[in-house]
Every structure is written in structure tokens, then in C-alpha cells.
Nucleic acid binder design. Structure first.
Lengths: 237, 237
DNA sequence: TGTACATCAGTGAACGCGCGTTCACTGATGTAC
DNA sequence: TGTACATCAGTGAACGCGCGTTCACTGATGTAC
């Protein structure tokens, strides 16, 4: 037994065995199933196999539970973005693209977290730890943008990294919200959300003066009607 | 009296005086006030000054009411975007930018419609008229993108208009959702959402080969630390 | 090691409340003759 | 023009239901000695 007291306690809990964690998991399942709006405090208790009064030992009320989920969501989001960024390896541009893909992957694979973070109406401003967690997640994008901005090619104007980060965040968020959700409210799309986002970011970066072509330079089109490969090379007819 | 029968009826209604319309307005007010999640069918009836049973004469249930609001929202959204586009006057690029601004203005000025359209969980797919209304709104952006794509400068590759429209829609939606709401869940921003979106669209268009500088060509920066004017000229320090 | 006590997570019963929904009804409006 | 009837929007009472919340309680775990 090399467990310290805290570890043992966190692992087994008192009676139920870590009810707080079980409630968070139950709520996540319910949100994924019925949406952030359609889950209740009593629901979470029932789903965790516990009486309706038990959650009050761990959360002030439903909003408190929801805020905890959002907080954890931002932490996992930050971790996912950080892993995708991988400190800019193997090169800044491709790592940057990977961060965008990770944004979409998170929205698709963790719809419950995503709902709690962005669509549940949790008051971020009145919850400093939650706001800080959100800032840290955004910070990953900001740092990536700073590294990218530092690589501005000679002759091009160096853009403010904060603005770049906000643009990329907004574009990723828009694509994820409109097209990249697992189940509900998605619209038909002639291409995958990942390809849509990638093409958008590449065009954006080119607009900033970055060379983004895989091939050094695409030949000018022989006919105006034909589509030589560009950042949108994957778009179907 | 030149009223046709339908007109008179639509104007006064039977007893209450167009309760259907009053319920829609009441629900809009409640959504704006408490969010799409926190309004009930009974609430709308009460707010319209009518018994709790009355709404059943006009809407099957709460979701039906919400879908009607979303439908009307998309129609007004389409009208706002169409007006902003103004058939591409006075020139295609500036009209295009105006459409983006109209997107943000709608999200800010009509938060209740925006919530019902994009955040209320109304099942768009199982509601063909609603889906069609959404498509028509998107169609405005698509048409604008087509006109813009047709202007691709010589030497640049003409981008698929559908993809351009999806990018602009996504960026606008992301900016509006993250920063451009009237009251709730907004984050701090070092510039206005309008300026953020405008800069993003300009950079994007430049990435497609469009000339977007107001000045013919900005001089290269004398010092790397200084920021000459670009599309992000309005960004504060 | 064992006993007595303290702590505290979870119980279950209880409550008030507002929501969704139904139903027979009423009364104003529209229409046939 | 007037009367009788049909239509139908809105009423108000009623119901079952589930939620949020409280409270004294119980019993398992931790700790002092």
C-alpha cells in the first residue's frame, strides 16, 4: 500500500465510491443524450443510482454541476489542443493545422463537454476559475499564432498574433458549431468539416503572406473552367 | 373597406386579436430575457395574457412554437442579408463585407431569433419548411460568393463559390457566437466583433488573390516592430 | 489491538410548485335563409 | 334587415407528474486513546 491518504480517498470515496465523479459522468451522459437543456439535477442522481438528495453533498445546484462540467471540459480541451500543437513539431504550419483539426475532433467526440462549454448558458463571467480555464484553452491557440506570426516571410507585414488567434478560433468554432457536431442540428456539407476548415485556414494564411502550397507554385489554369489544385483541392465537384 | 376577408382576419383575429402572433412575440421576449432553454409554454401564455390552455389552439406544443420562431427568424435573417447584399452594389467586395456585418448585426439585435435558430436544439432535419428557410438564408451568402468568385483576378485560381460561402458563413457564425452576442457568454475582445470579422474576411479574400488593400500597396515595414496599416489596421496595441 | 467517539456521505420521506395537457364550457363572430 | 344556427377561439377547473429542496436519520469510515 503506497497510497497516500488523499489518493485512497479519491479512488474509493466514502460510501458510494466517489459519487462526485459518478455524478459528473452521469450528467455528461445525459447531456450527450438529451442536450444541455434537457437534463435535470434529479436525472443525474437517478442515473448515478443515488437518491435525489445525494447530489447536494457535492454541488450547490444544477448550475454548479454544469459549471464543473464546463470547467473540466475546458481543461480537457486545453490538453487536446496542447497535444495537437506538440510545441510546433515538426513544423509550425502543419502543427497549426493540427490544432484546428483537434478543435473539430473535440466538438465531435465530446459533444457533451462542448455543449456545456459553449451552449449551456453557464455564466462564464461570474465564475473566475471557469473563465481562467477557458482562457488557458484559448491560450494554446494564441501561443501557436504567436509562433506562426514570428515566421512571417520577409516582405509580408507581420500580423498581430492575437488577431490571428481570434480568427482561427472563430473559424474553427463556426465550422464545428454549424457542421461538426455528432448528431443534432448539423447541415449537409459537400465536404468534410475537417477539409473545410483546413482549406479555410490555408487560404487565410496565404492571405497573410505565408507560402501554403504543397507544390511550390501551381501553374496558371489553362482554361478558366478547370480547377487546378489549390488549398481547396479536395472539394468535390 | 377594401380589406379582403383574409386581411381583416389576420389583422384582428377572432377573440383575442391574433393570439398566434401575440404568442410568438411573447416567446421572443422570454427567450431574449431568459434564454431559449428557460422559457415554457405556460410562460408564453401568461406573458400573452391568456390562459395556459389557449396556446394549444395555435401550436401543437412548445417545440412547435419554437420551430415557428426559428422559421420566422430565418426569414428575417434572409431579408436582412439580402438587403445588405443589395445585389452587389456599389461594388461586389464592399457589398460582400456588408453581408458579414449584417450577420453580426442580426446576432446582436435579434438574440432571441438567433438563439431559436442556432442554439435551441430545434430539429432542422425533421422540419422541411424550416430547413428550406435556413437554406434560403444561406443562399444569399452563396450567391454573393458566386458573384465574387466570378471576379477572380487573372492569374489567380477561381475558388469554388460554395466553399467560399461556407468559409464566410463559418467565420461569421464563429465571431457572432463567441463575441457578438448582446448579453450572455461573451468574452472580452481587444477589438469590435465587426472589425475582427472584417479583417478576417479581407485576409481571406487576399488569400484567394483578391486585391483588398485600400491603399494600392502598403510600403514594407521600416522596422519589424512597427505595424503599418493592413486589413487589421484597426487592431489596438 | 481494541474500544469509544466523531465525522460525514447518502437515505427516504415530505413539501410546495409549476408545468403540460385534457375537457366540457362560454361567448363572440360568421353565415344561411 | 333580422333571426337561427354553426363555427371556433379562449376559459377555468382539474389531473398527474417530476423537479428542487429540506430534514432528521442511518450507517460506514476515520481517529483518539
Amino acid at each position: 500500500m503506497s497510497w497516500r491518504k488523499d489518493d485512497r480517498r479519491a479512488e474509493r470515496g466514502y460510501h458510494h465510491g466517489n459519487l462526485k465523479e459518478a455524478l459528473l459522468q452521469a450528467a455528461l451522459g445525459l447531456i450527450a443524450e438529451k442536450g444541455a437543456a434537457g437534463f435535470t439535477f434529479a436525472d443525474a442522481a437517478r442515473s448515478a443510482g443515488v437518491s435525489a438528495a445525494a447530489p447536494y453533498r457535492h454541488f450547490r445546484d444544477r448550475d454548479d454541476l454544469l459549471a464543473s462540467i464546463a470547467q473540466r471540459g475546458f481543461e480537457q480541451f486545453e490538453a487536446a489542443l496542447t497535444a495537437a500543437w506538440d510545441d510546433g513539431r515538426p513544423d509550425t504550419v502543419s502543427a497549426f493545422m493540427r490544432v484546428g483539426k483537434a478543435y473539430l475532433a473535440f466538438a465531435r467526440n465530446e459533444p457533451a463537454f462542448y455543449s456545456a462549454m459553449f451552449e449551456s448558458g453557464v455564466p462564464v463571467d461570474s465564475n473566475p476559475p471557469l473563465a481562467a480555464a477557458g482562457e488557458r484553452a484559448f491560450g494554446v491557440i494564441r501561443i501557436a499564432a504567436e509562433r506562426l506570426a514570428a515566421l512571417t516571410p520577409p516582405g509580408a507585414t507581420r500580423p498581430p498574433a492575437m488577431m490571428m488567434a481570434l480568427h482561427i478560433w472563430s473559424l474553427s468554432h463556426g465550422v464545428a458549431s454549424l457542421f461538426g457536431r455528432g448528431d443534432a442540428a448539423r447541415r449537409k456539407l459537400p465536404m468534410s468539416p475537417e477539409d473545410l476548415l483546413e482549406a479555410g485556414v490555408l487560404i487565410y494564411l496565404r492571405g497573410l503572406g505565408f507560402p501554403t502550397e504543397r507544390r511550390p507554385q501551381p501553374p496558371p489554369p489553362p482554361e478558366a473552367g478547370e480547377r487546378p489544385a489549390g488549398p481547396w483541392g479536395k472539394v468535390p465537384k
